[in-house]
Structure formats: C-alpha cells, structure tokens
C-alpha cells in the first residue's frame, strides 16, 4: 500500500469484507480439505498421517469406480438430451407461435422449484403401485413399469425428472443467444428461398455455437455434481446401481466418518470439474480469437 494513494486504500477497504468471508469459507476449506485428504480421521480420534494412502485406496475401491461410472452415465444421459430440449424450446419461444410467451413461462417454471420438491413429486408420479404413470399404463392395458426400482430404468427415470426440471434453464440461455442474431440474416435467407429447417441448420445453429459451448459445459458440471435427485428418488438403489459420486462422498464422510477418504474423493471430483472448466475456457477462447 502506498501511503497517500487513496485508490489503493479504498480498493482494499471496499474489498475487505468479501475477502475475509472468501478466505474463511472458500480458500481455507479448499486448502484444509487437501491437507485432510492425507490423513486417516474419524473426527472422534486423532488424525493420523497416511500420506497418499487415501488416494491409493481410492483407485482400488470398486465402489468409487461404480459411483464414478454412474455419475458418468448420468452425465451422458442428461447432457445431449437437455441441450437438444433447451434448444428446441428456445426455437419455439423465439419463433412465430401465438403462444410463445406461454411456452416460455411453462417450460421455465419447473426450474424455480427446489430439487427436493421436484424429486418427491416425480417419485410420486413414478410410484410403482399408485403413481399416475403406471395407472395410465394399466388403464390402456399395459404392464406397470418399475420406474425407480428397476436397475436398468432407475437412472433414466432420474434423468427424465432432471430434464423436466432444468431444460427451461438451457432454453433461457439459448433464447438469449438466438435473440442476438440479426433478423436481416433470416430475411435475406427467406428471400433466397431457404426453408425453416435450412435456416435453423445454416444460420441459427452456427451462430449460437458459443452459447452451445457454454450450455454444454454448465450442463456437464451440473450433471457431475448430481446428488439430490438420486438421494431423494432412489436413495442410490436399487442395489447401489444409481449411487453417484457426490453421494458416495457424502456417505463416506458423514455416515462412516472417514473424513480423509471423503476429502480425497472430493478432490478427484474437483479435478474432473477443473478439467472441464479449463476445456471451456480454451474452447470459448479459441472461438473469440477466430
């Protein structure tokens, strides 16, 4: 700090309240988490230093791999579907439909509900014996489906719930991107005889590509962090086939009190998300330079 330079002094004073909180609840736990990951610790007894043992255990832990795999499954199920759904919705609300305002509201509305409300609601819709989905199936002469208790279906059901819940979010981002495309481009394309499909393919999709990258990255990160929907709807079952990484981190830390091991796993998750974020910046950066 230069004495007499008010800008520096003011800058520090105005930044200070945030920085204190940021240090206390972000930087410090981030570093201490890494530190804890080198210890074996159950809170009650004293921690013992084990070096890289937690990380070594992790790479031979079948449950870790299966949780990571389920998370990846969820990412692969939700990312393309949510991107396409959001884009189609955005096309609908920026087009010429007489009820596009209604659609914007209706498609976005589920997003404002909390995850637990959405999950309990869909667990009820998909309930095996009395849920409406199966009631309808029975009434049209079909066999009821075990939406949440069938090993092959459970994750899809959670993904479907997530689609209903958050597709509107992607719609808003895509909608903002589409609205920035000048009308004249479409008009001149129409004069040249381009059909709607053609102008979507050759004008809209290329011109919203930076929004697409943004949506893609946000979606991958959000899907990697999935926990609540699974926790409420299936509890990780049936037979652990929907147990995701965050759930395993939570259970390891707060059911079995293996703090060091839990911290080590969360760092692996961080690493994955960090790589996705870095990918985002290189992809977006390249776009802007081109």
């Amino acid at each position: 700090m230069i004495p007499g330079n008010k800008d520096t002094r003011d800058g520090i004073i105005f930044s200070l309240p945030f920085l204190v909180v940021y240090l206390a609840f972000m930087i410090y736990p981030l570093l201490s988490g890494l530190y804890i990951s080198f210890f074996k610790w159950d809170i009650l007894s004293t921690a013992s230093f084990v070096g890289l043992d937690n990380y070594r255990t992790l790479f031979s832990d079948e449950k870790f791999y299966s949780s990571l795999w389920h998370t990846l499954q969820f990412v692969l199920m939700t990312t393309p579907t949510l991107l396409v759904a959001g884009f189609l919705m955005a096309l609908a609300i920026t087009g010429s439909s007489p009820w596009k305002g209604l659609m914007e509201n209706v498609f976005f509305f589920p997003y404002i509900f909390s995850m637990t409300v959405v999950s309990t609601l869909w667990a009820w819709l998909m309930q095996k014996d009395w849920g409406i989905f199966n009631q309808v199936l029975i009434n049209i002469g079909q066999n009821p489906v075990s939406w949440l208790t069938n090993e092959r279906l459970a994750m899809w059901s959670v993904a479907l719930t997530t689609l209903w819940w958050t597709a509107g979010f992607n719609m808003v981002l895509f909608g903002a991107g589409i609205k920035q495309i000048p009308k004249e481009i479409y008009e001149s394309a129409a004069i040249d005889g381009a059909t709607y499909i053609q102008s979507v393919r050759h004008i809209t999709i290329p011109l919203v590509s930076s929004t697409t990258v943004l949506c893609l990255i946000l979606q991958i990160i959000a899907s990697f962090n999935v926990f609540g929907q699974v926790y409420v709807m299936t509890g990780g079952g049936p037979h652990g086939t929907t147990r995701v990484l965050v759930q395993y981190i939570y259970e390891t830390g707060f059911k079995f009190f293996k703090m060091g091991y839990s911290a080590a796993m969360s760092y692996i998750l961080f690493l994955i998300i960090l790589m996705v974020s870095i990918l985002q910046y290189t992809l977006l950066g390249r776009k802007e330079n081109a």
Binding site: F25, M26, N225, I249, S266, L269, I273
Partner: peptide, 9 residues
C-alpha cells in the same frame, strides 16, 4: 470450485 469439495473441511 464445486461446493461438494468443501463439505468435509
């Protein structure tokens, strides 16, 4: 930084 990374510390 995903919040999940911070829960244990």
């Amino acid at each position: 930084v995903p919040f999940q990374v911070l829960i244990v510390p």
